[in-house]
């Protein structure tokens, strides 16, 4: 069984539809550690020791947050800056995170088609996530493709419900090591590992 740490960041969860529903589903899965960053650190006063201990006692790190201005909410950056210390996470003697897995769970209002060279946003989600990808590799972690839910602005309650169930199913499968991770090498989104009907996103 893989130990999963969900690093959740949403500054205004009371205004969220998709993330709130997703988080609610995940809370029902056993054996997943949820670290709700904005709830834990309302003053951004990240407890570095606590966070590092959490990282050490888990195998897969999941960063779940909305995409704000092509990036993460502010606390994720704060977390990375403080927790991934030199000599601990990276550098000559920083090998504490070696071999751990990391991936992002992102929601975006825009459609999937808009995130490519020809599209409205000109770049892919992977392009926007390059900084984190480099960070992960520098820390000798295994970087997996993101799990992305596009087109949230157009979703109705039923769509959101299906998305949440699918997401929870992904995390359960990862926890139970039922997914062959070799597949990740050939895909863009982790979504491709699951049978999600494309129609929901369009």
């Amino acid at each position: 069984m893989a130990r999963i740490l969900l690093l959740f960041a949403h500054p205004a969860l009371e205004k969220s539809r998709v993330h709130a529903a997703m988080l609610k589903r995940v809370q029902q899965i056993t054996d997943i550690t949820i670290n709700d960053l904005y709830q834990q650190y309302p003053f951004f006063d990240i407890d570095i020791q606590r966070e590092q201990e959490l990282l050490l006692s888990n195998d897969i790190f999941v960063f779940q947050h909305p995409l704000y201005w092509y990036s993460s909410p502010a606390i994720v950056k704060q977390w990375q800056d403080l927790v991934l210390e030199h000599g601990w996470a990276y550098g000559k003697n920083g090998r504490m995170l070696e071999g751990k897995k990391i991936f992002h769970v992102i929601t975006s209002g825009g459609r999937a088609e808009s995130y490519n060279k020809e599209g409205y946003n000109a770049y892919s989600i992977q392009d926007f996530l390059r900084p984190v990808e480099r960070t992960a590799r520098l820390c000798r972690m295994e970087y997996w493709p993101p799990y992305v839910i596009h087109g949230t602005h157009r979703m109705n309650e039923a769509d959101i419900n299906i998305q949440s169930i699918q997401y929870a199913a992904l995390l359960s499968a990862l926890r139970d090591e039922k997914i062959d991770m070799k597949e990740t090498e050939s895909i863009n989104y982790l979504n491709e590992l699951l049978p999600i009907r494309k129609s929901i996103e369009t």
């Binding site: 500054p11 205004a12 205004k15 704000y68 209002g109 602005h153 157009r154």
Partner: peptide, 15 residues
């Protein structure tokens, strides 16, 4: 006033 995190107006515009 945390409208920056409120996507409601954006949703309305798109829809």
């Amino acid at each position: 006033r945390d409208a920056g995190w409120d996507v409601e107006s954006l949703r309305e515009e798109i829809n």
